[in-house]
Computed example of a mutant assay.
Amino acid sequence: MKLLEKNTDAGILILRLSIGILMLLHGIAKLSSGAGMIEQIVVGAGLPSFIAYGVYVGEVIAPLFIIAGYGTRIAGAIFAVNCVVAASLAHSADIFTLSQSGGWAVELLGLYFFGALALVFTGGGKYALSRKHLWD
């Protein structure tokens, strides 16, 4: 039972792998299908179209850094900002609504956001590729 006693670093590793891998799958889908849909949403909001390509930073690059545990705090912050942008551009009508099953309509996005925010505060933990700098 010693293994289960306050192993915060294992918990941080599980969090890093969970949100990193799951968001990376979204990013891979966007890599294969392109950013056309995102670009339409961005332009529809009156923003320059090149901003749509930031989705690759937030859904591919940041998750890879989070998974590796390199620059975890900065990658988590980028990931969290990506979630806020997605919520404001694509899910703004759902932010204050519940789904048919009674859950928050954007609960997956919320879990991603709060998981990334937790990593901003905790860093990558001892099972990270780097942990010597403030941004790790």
Rank of each mutant, 00 (worst) to 15 (best):
M23C: 13
P48D: 07
V43L: 08
G46R: 07
N7T: 02
I14M: 14
F65N: 00
L4A: 14
L64F: 01
V43H: 05
Q40Y: 01
M23Q: 11
V43I: 07
I12M: 10
S18G: 12
G76C: 10
A77V: 06
T8K: 06
I38C: 06
Y70N: 05
S33K: 15
I21Y: 12
E59P: 04
G44V: 04
F65I: 01
K6T: 09
I21P: 10
P48K: 03
I28P: 13
I19G: 12
H26E: 00
G46S: 05
F65M: 04
G20A: 11
G11I: 03
S32C: 09
V42Y: 14
I12P: 13
L25T: 08
S33C: 04
A29K: 14
L31N: 11
G71V: 06
G46N: 03
A68F: 05
I14T: 14
A62P: 13
R16M: 13
G11E: 03
T72N: 05
I12F: 15
G54L: 06
I19M: 09
A52E: 11
R73V: 00
L15W: 11
D9V: 00
T72A: 04
G58C: 09
M23R: 14
I67L: 06
Y53T: 00
K30H: 14
E59D: 04
A35T: 15
G69C: 09
A10D: 08
V43P: 08
G20L: 10
K6C: 05
R73D: 00
L22I: 09
L13D: 04
S18W: 11
D9A: 05
E5A: 06
Y56P: 08
L64K: 01
S18E: 02
S33I: 10
G76K: 10
V60L: 12
S49R: 07
I12E: 03
E59T: 09
L17M: 15
I28V: 15
I12Q: 03
I12H: 11
M23Y: 09
L64P: 04
I74H: 03
L31C: 15
Y56R: 03
A52S: 11
P63H: 03
Y53P: 07
G36T: 08
L15H: 10
E59G: 01
G71N: 03
I19K: 10
R73I: 00
A10Y: 07
I51Q: 01
F65G: 01
E39A: 07
I51K: 06
D9E: 07
S33W: 12
L15E: 08
G36A: 10
D9T: 01
S18L: 11
A45H: 12
G34F: 12
